[in-house]
Nucleic acid binder design. Structure first.
Lengths: 136, 136
DNA sequence: ATAATTGCAAATGCTTTGCTTGTGA
DNA sequence: TCACAAGCAAAGCATTTGCAATTAT
């Protein structure tokens, strides 16, 4: 059984064939698929799963803290399995490739800034968009 | 004449009554209105301006570097006049209020991270979401 | 004069939802 | 059993677009 299914059990999220399948596909994903792409992958295994169910399921999983939703620039929402440790994203503007990174210094600075203005940081979004430097 | 109108002249963007009006309203805005709100403010002065024109105009202004578009969490795109110096945003999750801030250290770190992965930073998005700390 | 702009309504693209039938615990 | 989930198609929401009429230079 995969991590997502396990989390469903822990959190009391009822499992169905469709949810199990979506859990499996998302568990095996190494990228950040959007709903359409996820539906395509799921459909390869079971054609009968509707896109509405995929939408409902990713929403449910997100609300349960099982998946993380990202609204990167340029359109549709994309999902990844909720990571154990927080990371941010560097997006290749040419290929669409996504690199995950962690930087404690930036995380600290963000908290400091919020504090400075009298706020408690409850959420944040840090996305870097870059293009590959060609090596000579 | 306001700053936005001036920029239109400089950049060769043709001015119409509608565009002049939108330029005026955005010039006077101290917040980050969405298209609907902008249309409301414009309509108070001229009811005949259509929302389609507002959409077309903010898009045009954005592409000309006159306005900056932001897709903060939770729905519609919001706009502000392109600032002279870059800043990021701290959004009050309760009131929706937006605080602009500048932090050179974070800016530098972002460049360093992109570099570290072999990328040139072409764009970025840093948004902090916080709730006010109550003073006792 | 004439290429660009507007207003309107229809179309779009992503996402959600009402309803009826099916199903997991 | 029976509250919840799935499938389908229709609806929703922000945004875009085709087209005929209007306007800026």
């Amino acid at each position: 059984m995969n991590k997502i299914e396990e989390k469903c059990k822990t959190k009391g999220v009822r499992l169905t064939d469709q949810r199990r399948l979506i859990a499996k596909v998302m568990s095996e994903a190494t990228d950040h698929p959007d709903v359409d792409e996820l539906h395509k992958r799921v459909s390869k295994i079971d054609k009968k799963v509707s896109i509405a169910t995929v939408y409902r399921t990713v929403k449910l999983f997100e609300e349960s803290g099982i998946l993380e939703k990202h609204d990167f620039k340029g359109g549709k929402a994309r999902y990844e399995q909720s990571p154990d440790t927080h990371h941010d994203h560097l997006i290749d503007v040419n290929s669409g490739e996504i690199i995950e990174f962690v930087d404690d210094e930036i995380e600290n600075l963000q908290n400091k800034i919020a504090e400075k203005y009298g706020y408690k940081l409850v959420d944040h979004r840090l996305e870097l968009y870059g293009s590959k430097i060609k090596k000579n």
